[in-house]
Design a protein around this nucleic acid. Structure first.
Lengths: 168, 168
DNA sequence: ATAAACTTTCAATAATTTTTGAAAGTTTAA
DNA sequence: TTAAACTTTCAAAAATTATTGAAAGTTTAT
C-alpha cells in the first residue's frame, strides 16, 4: 500500500472509531492527522488536508486541547499557531481514560449514590429489584473507578507487566 | 427519595451514559427499565412507560436482544411476548465488552494490520512517523484485545480478586 | 379458510448534532 | 494609530440519526 492511501485510510479508521465511542468524527480525524504528522501543523494546513472549514478546525482543535491530546506550539518569529499531538499511545490512552472518568463515570457515581437513598417497602418487589440493581451497578462502578485511578498513576511498563501476568 | 422519582432518574442517567458511549439513548433507557423491573414486560408496557412508539420499541428490543442484554419470554396460554433483562452486572459488562470487541476492536485490528504493509522511504519523516504511530497503536490494540479475551473467559470472583490484587 | 391478536417494516418526519463562513475580535509590527 | 495577520464566535444550513405510525406481515385458534 502507498503511503498517501494509507494515511487516508488511517484517518478514516480513526474517525470511525471515534464516532463509535461518542467522540466527534472530525475531532478524531484531526487527531489522527496530527498523530501521523512529524511536524506541527497550522490551522490552515489542517483545514486543507481534511477539507473542513476554519470554524470547525478552530473548535475541534480547542476540544482536542481540552482533552489533553494535542498542544499548541509557537515558532520563533511567526504569528501562526502550530499544533502537534502527543505520539505516546500510553499517554493517549491514559488521557482519554482520565477525561472520560471525570466527565462520565464520576457523574454516574454521584447519581447512583443519590439513588441508593431511596426509601420504600421491603416487601415490594419493585423496590427490592430497584435497590438490588442500583447497588450492584454501584459496586461495579466503584471498582471500575478504582481500577482507572490506579491505571492513571501507573507507568506503562509496570502496567503491562502486571496486567499481562494476571491475564496470562 | 421516592421510588417513582428514583426510577425515572435511573432511566434518565442510564440513557445519558449510553448516548455518551455511542449507544442509542432509547435503547439504554429500555434496558434500564427492564433492569429495574422484577417482571418481564410486554412491548405495550414498555411503549407506555417510556412514551415511545410501537416501531421504536420493536426495533430497540430487537437491538437489545442482538447485544445479548435482554431475552424474550413466553407465558403459557398467552400470545404476547414478554421481555426481561439479565440482572447480573458482571454478565452485562462482559456482554457489552464482547460485542464491542467484535464490532469495533476487531475491524480496527484488521485495518491496522493492512496499514502496516505500507511501503516507503525509510529516510522520509512522514513515512517513519506514520509507521511508528500505526505500529504503536497496533501493539496497544493487540494488548487490549488479549486482555478482553481473558476477561470474557473469567469468572467474576476470579476477576475482581486478581485485578484488585494488582491494583492494590 | 377466516379473523383476531400480535409483530415487523419502512417511508416520512422530527430531533439532534455537526459544519459552515462571514463578521467580530485580538495581537503584533511599524 | 493603523492595518495586516491571525483567531474566535455563532446563527444559519447541512448532515446525520432517531422516531413515528399506519400498513403489511405473521401466527394461532376455531
Amino acid at each position: 500500500m502507498e503511503l498517501a492511501a494509507a494515511k487516508l485510510k488511517f484517518i478514516e479508521a480513526w474517525g470511525k472509531l471515534g464516532s463509535e465511542w461518542g467522540i466527534n468524527r472530525t475531532m478524531a480525524q484531526v487527531h489522527a492527522l496530527l498523530l501521523i504528522s512529524p511536524e506541527a501543523l497550522t490551522t490552515e494546513e489542517i483545514m486543507e488536508q481534511l477539507s473542513i472549514s476554519r470554524g470547525n478546525a478552530n473548535m475541534t482543535l480547542r476540544d482536542l486541547i481540552g482533552w489533553g491530546l494535542i498542544e499548541k506550539q509557537h515558532k520563533a518569529g511567526e504569528r501562526k499557531e502550530y499544533f502537534f499531538a502527543d505520539k505516546d499511545v500510553w499517554n493517549i490512552a491514559r488521557q482519554v481514560a482520565k477525561e472520560r472518568k471525570k466527565r462520565e463515570l464520576e457523574p454516574v457515581l454521584k447519581v447512583l449514590n443519590e439513588l441508593s437513598t431511596v426509601v420504600g417497602d421491603e416487601k415490594d418487589p419493585d423496590y427490592k429489584t430497584f435497590k438490588k440493581s442500583v447497588s450492584d451497578i454501584n459496586k461495579l462502578a466503584i471498582n471500575v473507578d478504582k481500577t482507572l485511578e490506579t491505571m492513571l498513576k501507573a507507568e506503562e511498563n509496570w502496567f503491562w507487566g502486571s496486567i499481562l501476568k494476571v491475564f496470562k
